[in-house]
């Protein structure tokens, strides 16, 4: 469980904070989707969790531990984060890359058999055993995202944070990645996922947190967020909500401007 308690992050003094008194929690056993327009503070929350942005106010808890007293290595043994940006300037073999997930546990110069077992489990779980000998710069977008999730799984954590993992993926790759993430959550992990795909989040997430200008607008079940009036004012665009006949999930349709 990851809990944010009234956090405020400000990039520069005298400018409105990027995140302003946000409280939210990502509970075990489900996906908590962090949604909202560009610049609403989603990625800033992830960066604050990573320790890349100092908190002006508020606190972050990882289970019951205060994030600010956790060493970075300790944090990485509890929470696996797949950040939005990652350039493979110097490509690695996929197997080598996934093994970097063991870095928070590394001691000295050698790998332990425990590491090998964790990497193998992660590779199986993410179903990437066919990619192990490929180079990270030779992967398709969908393969690369799966490999990054495998690297996070090798960290052997109970909490997983993903920042827009399905950007640029086609339907099949997007859906199979979301099914994988969903099955991880169903297995008990606490998953916090930043996404622009409201329709898919409404189907996969157990909870959605809608942000606008650094503040939480709605925090609740997907049906609470998927309200035409709320979304229209947050996204500043006409929107219609219908229901998927098969699952009953709310479906958003942006309308043409008259």
């Amino acid at each position: 469980m990851i809990t944010f308690e009234g956090i405020t992050v400000r990039y520069r003094a005298n400018v409105d904070p990027a995140v302003n008194g946000v409280s939210l929690a990502a509970a075990d056993g489900g996906i908590t989707a962090l949604v909202g327009p560009n610049g609403s503070g989603k990625s800033t929350i992830v960066r604050a969790l990573l320790g890349r942005e100092p908190l002006e106010a508020g606190r972050i808890f990882v289970n019951d531990l205060d994030r600010s007293v956790l060493k970075q290595r300790e944090f990485a043994r509890l929470v696996a984060v797949v950040p939005q940006r990652e350039e493979a300037v110097f490509p690695l073999e996929v197997g080598e890359y996934v093994a970097l997930g063991r870095h928070p546990y590394s001691r000295g110069l050698t790998n332990s058999p425990l590491d090998a077992a964790a990497v193998e489990r992660a590779v199986d779980r993410a179903e990437i055993s066919g990619l192990l000998r490929r180079r990270t710069d030779e992967l398709s977008g969908g393969e690369w995202q799966r490999v990054r999730v495998a690297r996070a799984l090798a960290q052997d954590t109970r909490m997983l944070v993903l920042d827009e993992p399905t950007t640029f993926l086609d339907i099949a790759h997007e859906m199979s990645l979301l099914e994988l993430i969903h099955s991880l959550a169903a297995g008990g992990m606490a998953v916090l996922m930043v996404s622009h795909q409201l329709n898919l989040m409404a189907r996969f997430a157990s909870r959605m947190v809608l942000l606008s200008r650094g503040r939480v607008v709605v925090d609740g079940a997907p049906s609470a967020v998927m309200e035409a009036g709320i979304l229209e004012s947050v996204y500043d665009w006409p929107i219609a909500i219908s229901r998927d006949t098969a699952s009953g999930a709310p479906v958003l349709m942006p309308l043409r401007k008259k």
């Binding site: 960066r47 990573l50 320790g51 890349r52 060493k71 970075q72 290595r73 300790e74 944090f75 990485a76 043994r77 696996a80 984060v81 797949v82 950040p83 939005q84 940006r85 990652e86 350039e87 493979a88 300037v89 110097f90 690695l92 970097l100 997930g101 870095h103 928070p104 590394s106 110069l109 996070a152 960290q155």
Partner: peptide, 25 residues
Amino acid sequence: LLAFAREIDVLALGEEAAAALGSNV
């Protein structure tokens, strides 16, 4: 430098990924 080599592996992934893997960037 050899002792820091693993740290360089992780830093080479970028600032955020390195932090995610426990590096004190």
